[in-house]
Design a protein around this nucleic acid. Structure first.
Lengths: 357, 357
DNA sequence: CAGTTCTTTCAAAGCGCTTTGGGAAAACGG
DNA sequence: CCGTTTTCCCAAAGCGCTTTGAAAGAACTG
């Protein structure tokens, strides 16, 4: 059933039927009802490709899905996608994923732009030397970034969280609790968020008179394995008097590994070591559900997805000019994994004064 | 730059240019080169909507993305998507996600079908009373299912793993090791895979003369919390002489919670309790990376994604008729989390003969 | 060399929708 | 009651591509 058939059936022109269906005012209410009813009855749905061609609007937003060797789409993505989808639903837009290996990424963006298959795209996993911003702008593709680049760029739309502030606050708390030997198990510093987080930690240390060099900083892909490996490296052979007492972790997955290492080494939280983790709010893995509930810097990645979709749609429809740069504050939530530095208590009897849970 | 402009520039008809670009034979080699070069130089890319309209092919495969309250897209999805994307890349198709709340799911399928926005779709998270198969078939939408329904249906294309066999083998191993009190922490039994797994376990028990009622079976959404909660329920107040000694777990996320409960209760693997988990092969969370490496039934969900994309493309292009039902075997991999049942050794000295690691 | 077959190109007709620019009928105003 | 405005509907022109059917010219035939 197409428009022509429907209009013949109704003894109306295609114009009128189209207008009735799309809510234009210049059609009599009685006619509109008749049209809507017939459309409903015969199950007429406009062909989306024809409509896209005629209007020039695609009704969908795009994303270049990184695939290939060494590219692990991580669980963050699915949470983000959930948020995006939730908002997309309310605006009746679809999501179009174009798979591309990283080395042919820019080609993918060009193709998307030239083929007009989407109305706008979102960028995520922003890197320090982000070239995509200049690229998509040059291509005239409306976009919103999740995160931001370190490169200077004229006002472009992004939604980011205050990674610097979050990790500053987290580090400051540890310092206030008397920790002076800090470790930071960070994500890959090719990504801007990891750089910002490091900045936050060093700023807090500087404010406490600690030089940045005293921070044990390691960065790697955020998974369980790396968390374990780096924690082992930091703690296995380290003397209790020199090893870190405060650890910052960039993700719950890393923390899973870190906690595993601690268990294996017999280190107790928070008696021997305090930890604060960034929590992206996964429904399937919660910081309060650790044997020792984790203190976290918390920011919902799902909420960010929804917001980005919202803004992207606004930019596409012209309701927003697209230069607003949002930086969301991050909550610091204290749970049992943080406590006073062991050196602040009697040395040599670490943990003894606190009952095991 | 569109086809008309390009053809005028080249002093050729649109027909010829279009044919040259699409590799039709009836165009002179010299002309083709000239066209390709010009297209390259002026950055001509065909408008995808126009092409879709003209050909009737969408060049993309669809998926109805469940969103809304209580719907957590879980990390399985992202792995599956990775696989799908990897293959989609090689066939130059995009993925189109249509978000829909579960109660308006069928409407979404209808819209997709009527609007011809995709060439085919894949279905996942198959339920026992799956209605989508009949629906999409009625709609004439080519599809491949990941998993299968319990409902009888004439040959439709699916890719599934041998959940029954996997859990049968896992349960049999535990039984062979002398475990007689088994527990199964299963996924939601609305989903077919969970039913199949339960079937496998009970079959193995029956073969060992154990009635199905003796199995402690609990099913819930597969996350850390539920794993913890159910393990606590099973073990917290249970007598060592009556509590389960062998546990089967439906997912790594549940097992995270189960292990947490064991740690808290002081239960050692495998001395006090053996565990076998299903592993979907997440790159970010590996069974060998647990303090006690986990025995698993293993099947890559990513590989399934790639295969489903492949078959879907084949069905769309007519290279496959679409009635093949693939059931993949599942590996049973034994690691340190399984051992002989404690009752098989001296009672009262549980675990003492094995050094703590 | 006339007749036939290939090769190469083209004009034009869709694909199914939206939107422009009218135009007829109905309602209104004086 | 006639001119003007408003209401409602329509024919036709795109949107940018693919594909059909035909034609012109080149290359074979015998």
């Amino acid at each position: 059933m197409n428009l022509k058939q429907l209009s013949e059936l109704l003894q109306l022109s295609q114009t009128t039927v189209s207008r009735a269906l799309n809510g234009y005012p210049e059609v009599a209410e009685a006619t509109r009802r008749r049209v809507l009813e017939a459309a409903q009855r015969y199950g007429y749905k406009p062909n989306s490709n024809a409509r896209k061609l005629a209007t020039g609007r695609a009704g969908s937003i795009g994303y270049v899905l990184p695939v290939g060797r060494n590219v692990d789409l991580d669980p963050h993505f699915v949470e983000f996608l959930s948020g995006l989808g939730e908002h997309a639903l309310t605006r009746e837009v679809d999501l179009s994923l174009t798979p591309a290996p990283r080395e042919r990424e820019s080609e993918a963006y060009r193709r998307i732009a030239a083929s007009r298959s989407v109305d706008g795209i979102y960028l995520s996993s922003m890197r320090n030397d982000e070239r995509r911003i200049a690229l998509v702008r040059e291509l005239g593709l409306p976009f919103v970034a999740h995160g931001r680049s370190l490169m200077p760029a004229e006002g472009y739309a992004f939604v980011d969280i205050d990674n610097e502030g979050a990790f500053h606050d987290a580090a400051r708390l540890l310092l206030q609790l008397g920790h002076t030997r800090l470790a930071f198990i960070n994500g890959d510093t090719d990504f801007t968020f990891a750089v910002h987080r490091l900045d936050g930690v060093t700023r807090a240390m500087a404010a406490h008179g600690l030089p940045a060099e005293t921070l044990k900083h390691h960065s790697a892909a955020m998974n369980e394995d790396n968390g374990y490996r780096l924690a082992m490296m930091l703690f296995r052979d380290a003397d209790a008097a020199t090893r870190p007492t405060g650890v910052l972790s960039a993700s719950m997955f890393m923390t899973l590994g870190i906690v595993r290492a601690f268990n294996q080494l017999g280190l107790k939280m928070p008696q021997d070591v305090s930890i604060i983790t960034h929590d992206d709010v996964f429904p399937f893995l919660k910081p309060e559900s650790f044997t020792v509930p984790l203190s976290t810097t918390r920011s919902s990645i799902r909420a960010a997805g929804a917001r980005i979709c919202e803004r992207l749609v606004n930019i596409i429809t012209g309701a927003e000019t697209g230069e607003v740069q949002e930086i969301w504050p991050v909550d610091l939530i204290v749970r049992a994994s943080t406590g006073p530095a062991p050196s602040a208590r009697k040395p040599g009897r670490r943990g003894a004064e606190q009952a095991a849970e």
